[in-house]
Write a protein that binds this DNA or RNA. Structure first.
Length: 425
RNA sequence: GGAGAGAUGGCCGAGCGGUCGAAGGCGCACGCUUGGAAAGCGUGUGUAUCGCAAGGUACCGGGGGUUCGAAUCCCCCUCUCUCCGCCA
């Protein structure tokens, strides 16, 4: 959520930002509701003041007639207050609803564009493999080598689920541990987080847990949901708290399962492990002071690059365009790995994403710190994928395949897997 | 899941329907004292929101209600603790 006063005072900039993101939000309505709300607050507060004064007069002993008069006056005030309070609560509800649709401001350098193809490539790393044979995709490889079973998962759990088997299991655990070691080296506290979170936390992070469009699984009658990422549970960690400013930055890494409904998601790029209802992920999260956020964003991106370049996975980095930023994000970088099995001749597929969400999430979650000037301010919150295991597995399987259908293991990972090649049995 | 107890400021802990934004203590900050420190003494010390300001309003786990007036009474919910049951 943006600061309402900010929206009012910067209406034109806010509207431009909404347009740049190709969203439709009625900014004027937000301001109108905000103004109305403030008028009502003044009225209510004035009446309450009278009510309190009236009640105070009745403290001591007094004539019955006089007391009766005051009681009547109090009753009248009570009714007046109730009337305005009713309008106020309606306005407040609508204001909150409308205001939460307003996206975060975008970084001035974020490329302006509508969809992912407008993202700006800013870097490439590693060499796209040149095979002397027709590259197979991970589905074919995984079936051949008995590593992934989609068909049985479809029977047992539904489409877009999978069983990982044999070496793929070890590979997933190895990658997970590799990423955890890497983020620990960079000062992140490793955590294993709950896979379920309350709706209010989801909303605070900027997810919409309800509705057909929602990518979130809700758990009936509990007010909770399955998390789509540990960003939710890490971000909610300090909800409604004031963090000691000496404790900042707080750097945490969460290992969790991730559940996504992916309603309506289909097409050739959703095949296999690429877009599934459940996967596991190691996520980085930083709470920091505003002035440090840009630097930490670069740091997170650097760690992501370090993880994938050390695994010899070719990738490129894109600066996400305004239309492709999530509503809470001020700026976002994605790492896209080369996936030889994608499309006809291979293609880039997103493997990590890191966002600087400034104070957008902190405002609704109530996460603050006491600044040097003695005032409480919202912290800035950043998140980034250390490793999304299912997609990392795609990248390894497809980039490290050999002509005979085996899969080599990246050198740095061999100490973690205990084997250096996956061969047909 | 069953039975009971509890939830008050950074922490501990009082609190009779009006004098309670809330005693007292600890902690913290500043000052005095000291060669310096400790002790001692004094002063101060929550958050949010509206307002140019003066100031107002709200908040005693959360939500409703009773009342002229609620931290205090009533109802619902959540969480914590103890005991029992079940269980990886």
């Amino acid at each position: 959520m943006l600061d309402l006063k900010y929206i009012k005072e910067n209406a034109e900039a806010v509207k431009k930002n909404v347009a740049d993101r190709f969203m439709t939000v009625d900014v004027d309505r937000v301001i109108e509701l905000y103004d109305r709300r403030n008028v009502l607050i003044s009225e209510i507060d004035g009446l309450r003041q009278k009510r309190n004064e009236n009640a105070k007069k009745m403290k001591g002993p007094m004539e019955q007639a006089e007391r009766q008069k005051l009681i009547e006056e109090g009753k009248k005030l009570k009714e007046d207050i109730a009337k305005i309070e009713e309008e106020f609560s309606g306005v407040e509800t609508e204001l909150k609803e409308e205001a939460s649709k307003v996206p975060n401001m975008a970084h001035p350098d974020a490329p302006i564009g509508k969809e992912d193809k407008d993202n700006l490539e800013i870097k490439r790393s590693g060499k796209v493999p040149a095979f002397g044979f027709k590259a197979r995709d991970h589905i074919e490889l995984g079936t051949e080598l008995d590593l992934i079973d989609f068909d049985t998962a479809a029977k047992v759990s539904g489409a877009k689920f999978y069983y990982l088997k044999n070496e793929a299991v070890i590979l997933e655990m190895a990658l997970s541990r590799y990423a955890v070691d890497m983020v620990m080296k960079h000062g992140f506290t490793p955590t294993i987080t709950p896979d379920i979170a309350k709706e209010e936390i989801l909303e605070g992070i900027g997810f919409n847990p309800r509705g057909d469009e929602s990518n979130i699984y809700s758990i009936e009658d509990t007010g909770t949901c399955l998390v789509g990422t540990a960003e939710i549970t890490l971000g909610g960690y300090f909800a409604n708290q004031i963090i000691n400013s000496e404790e900042l930055p707080v750097k945490m890494a969460g290992i969790s399962h991730c559940f996504r409904r992916e309603a309506g998601a289909a097409g050739q790029y959703s095949k296999g492990l690429y877009r599934v209802h459940q996967f596991s992920k190691v996520e980085m999260f930083i709470f920091c002071k505003p002035k440090d956020a840009d630097d930490f964003h670069e740091e997170i991106r650097g760690i992501e690059e370090e993880i994938f370049s050390s695994l010899d996975i070719p990738f490129r980095v894109v600066d996400t365009c305004t239309g492709d930023l999530g509503a809470p994000a001020y700026r976002k970088y994605d790492l896209e790995a080369w996936m030889p099995g994608r499309g006809d001749n291979g293609g880039w597929g997103e493997i990590t994403s890191t966002s600087n969400c400034t104070d957008y999430q902190a405002r609704r979650l109530g996460i603050r710190f006491k600044d040097d000037d003695g005032k409480n301010k919202h912290v800035y919150m950043l998140n980034g994928t250390a490793i999304a295991l299912s997609r990392a597995i795609i990248a390894i399987m497809e980039n490290f395949q050999t002509e005979d259908g085996s899969i080599r293991i990246p050198e740095k990972l061999v100490p973690y897997t205990g084997f250096d090649i996956i061969k047909k049995k």
